[in-house]
């Protein structure tokens, strides 16, 4: 039966009215609380900065000055820091999440699996503040992992030490989400494929390299990119763990707001950040399109 077609055609006038009623609140909230602020940000980013005002002066001159000011070494460093620390954290996160997801899906009893799921979901729903604080306690002045880092020759005050702590903070948040994302893909891999590979003479680790890894590669790619988007828009983690020495783009926006009240410049950085986030997202979309074309 052409059921799909019939159901589409079954939409009556009352359906159309119901649809308008059900969608209207979300559309209004989205338009007022999301789209308008973003458009306003774009306009604001082109306004001349007048110190000591919330927002620009009425009829302030239009200028690209705020963007031009970003073309300096300091902001380039911020951009670079955001991406390299975020990127390393995203990759380390996958390195742990991939075997962890496989372990939970294939090696645990249903009971233990539920327990592991509960643990991961608890971590996802836990406050980023708690997690950040916990990392600070673990690596901070009295932390138990501090001696470990000190013995490999890192000074507690060095830039490297702070970088590692920030990465640890990001990874702690990335692992649960990435694991849950990868578990979906792992579940859909037929376990008999591994048996088949091994019965054809491949040792276990090679079977994984030739079966599990390629089949979950699309999921791994998007999980990495999702983690990267999370990492580069992180705010609390670099703010608390970076001790003012590791600055992400979001921290600079906040500084523009709280310390020097330069809103037009904050708006310009916001737009740069939005553009980078969208760029990463569009890579995910392209990867998906590429996956479904194959």
């Amino acid at each position: 039966m052409t059921n799909a077609r019939q159901q589409t055609a079954a939409i009556s006038i009352s359906d159309r009215r119901d649809r308008a009623i059900t969608l209207a609140p979300a559309v209004l909230v989205l338009a007022f609380g999301f789209l308008s602020p973003l458009i306003n940000l774009a306009i604001e980013s082109l306004k001349e900065f007048t110190p000591g005002r919330v927002g620009s002066v009425e009829n302030a001159a239009t200028t690209v000055q705020n963007y031009h000011e970003l073309a300096n070494q300091a902001f380039a460093n911020v951009l670079l820091t955001t991406f390299w620390i975020g990127g390393v954290a995203a990759l380390v996160g996958q390195l742990v999440a991939f075997p962890l997801a496989y372990f939970i899906v294939r090696r645990l009893s249903p009971r233990m699996r539920t327990l592991a799921l509960g643990f991961l979901i608890t971590l996802v729903l836990s406050s980023v503040l708690i997690k950040t604080y916990a990392i600070e306690l673990t690596f901070g002045s009295v932390g138990i992992l501090r001696p470990l880092l000190l013995t490999v020759g890192l000074s507690a005050n060095s830039r490297e030490y702070i970088n590692i702590v920030v990465i640890a903070g990001l990874v702690h948040s990335i692992i649960p989400v990435a694991t849950l994302t990868l578990m979906g893909a792992m579940q859909s891999i037929d376990p008999r494929l591994l048996d088949a590979a091994q019965s054809l003479g491949a040792p276990g680790w090679k079977a994984h390299l030739s079966i599990t890894l390629p089949l979950s590669l699309p999921a791994l790619v998007s999980s990495t990119l999702i983690s990267l988007t999370f990492a580069i828009s992180a705010f609390v983690i670099p703010m608390v763990l970076g001790r003012g020495r590791v600055l992400f783009m979001s921290n600079v926006i906040y500084t523009r707001f709280s310390d020097i009240a330069n809103y037009p410049s904050g708006a310009a950085i916001s737009l740069v950040m939005l553009a980078t986030a969208l760029a990463v997202i569009s890579v995910i979309t392209l990867a998906h399109a590429w996956k479904s074309r194959r």
Binding site: M1, T2, N3, Q6, A9, A10, S12
Partner: peptide
């Protein structure tokens, strides 16, 4: 066979279609 219109008759009688 499927697509012959028999289900449409049913849906018309039930009032799901006009």
């Amino acid at each position: 066979p499927s697509g012959c219109g028999k289900t449409t008759i049913l849906r018309l009688i039930a009032g799901f279609e006009r």
